[in-house]
Design a protein around this nucleic acid. Structure first.
Lengths: 223, 223
DNA sequence: GTCTATAATCAGATAGAC
DNA sequence: GTCTATCTGATTATAGAC
């Protein structure tokens, strides 16, 4: 199994190629089309991964939704695992952009809440890929993916800094290991409670987000 | 798709048959063997469902672990979904037994914590089946399974009563919809944070349980 | 790179002898 | 009911023409 170009960077492969050529900021028309197609593939994959999960999603479905042949898709991504990894890399890129857009002077607790809100909104919008943590093949593919690991580490360090700040300020329980706090926040991205509440149909998306956000930070006991 | 006998009741089919015969409490030796085999199948399925998840588990693996042919397994359970449902019914039966064993005079909050502790211990022990909530075929099989629905409803009503009590006593945030509280508690049975913390290797199982229990009831903010 | 067509594999489910 | 052997269909992945 080899890496597809898109795995090495959040930006599509074709853009990278033109950059290596020392070319201008304007890539060729053909390259733009390829870049757009690759983005379309990843976007469909992301949506289907969110809707059906990795195991239930088939490569045929992704190709059909994009409107290309399956063999063409395999020219871009050498395996289903690599495709899923590309989806994760894309989402991680969006997450990093969001993190960078946050006002730097806000309290650490508010930064953490903003991150969790963003992740939950993405899940409710059907754009958060859900990958089975038990699949060791997929795990291996992710662990060998530099772009994924780099993005995950950068995000984790940024969030980890806020966790330590919040603990120092008494806004987060200082007895909790920071790593446990980080995992608890990340877990909101795949919290089944969101879908259950959505299926119950009694609350709007923003109400669900605030509800789960409250139980996450204040607990069931409440503030 | 038809129901296998074991789906209609938490007790194995063979025991039920002997009961219908008006027979004595002592079933025949042959019936005991069948009952034991069926229990062995469900137990292996439960373990493999916990270890690999529904999609990655194969019926061949279950049969191999029990030491029987796959075709024999299909004499007991008419589909993979029914087998998974039987595993859920078994676990629900254990849960009901645990609920019944709790002292009736304990505070509602303590009852809820005990339930969550029990679920998390089961997961850490590798005996909590993990079923993908997105698989609609599996969902349908569960929803048509009377034993599953009955068991789930009984447990939910019992726990729901404690939730309302705890809210009336101010031990649980009364602003939270009871159904959201119930879902939040149930979600601890498949919380990925447990596995992540276990993989991190820094804490014992009981420490992990108390850690997650604390974040569940007191939140990240802490008590 | 994209396509049609197909290989290769695997897993759920079944047939039929015993 | 259990077994061996097989069917059936779906899915990942590839070959080769254009």
């Amino acid at each position: 199994m080899s890496y597809s170009p898109a795995m090495l960077s959040p930006t599509p492969a074709t853009a990278k190629i033109s950059a290596l050529k020392g070319g201008p900021a304007r890539p060729s028309f053909k390259a733009q089309m390829l870049q757009a197609r690759e983005a379309a593939i990843v976007q469909s994959a992301t949506r289907l991964l969110a809707e059906k999960g990795f195991d239930m999603m088939t490569v045929d479905e992704v190709a059909a939704e994009v409107g290309i042949a399956k063999a063409s898709l395999y020219k871009h991504f050498s395996s289903k695992e690599d495709l899923a990894a590309a989806a994760m890399v894309q989402v991680l890129g969006q997450a990093r952009s969001f993190l960078a857009s946050l006002p730097a002077d806000a309290p650490a607790l508010e930064q953490l809440k903003a991150v969790v809100r963003w992740m939950m909104a993405l899940q409710l919008a059907g754009q958060m890929p859900s990958l089975p943590s038990q699949n060791s093949i997929l795990r291996a593919a992710l662990m060998r993916n530099k772009a994924y690991l780099d993005g995950l580490m950068e995000a984790s360090e940024r969030i980890g800094g806020w966790i330590e700040q919040a603990q120092a300020q008494g806004a987060i329980n200082a007895r909790l290991p920071p790593i446990a706090v980080l995992y608890t926040l990340y877990a909101r991205a795949c919290d089944p409670v969101l879908d259950f509440l959505k299926m119950a149909g009694q609350h709007s998306d923003s109400q669900i987000i605030e509800l789960v956000l409250s139980t996450c930070f204040d607990g069931l006991k409440g503030p």
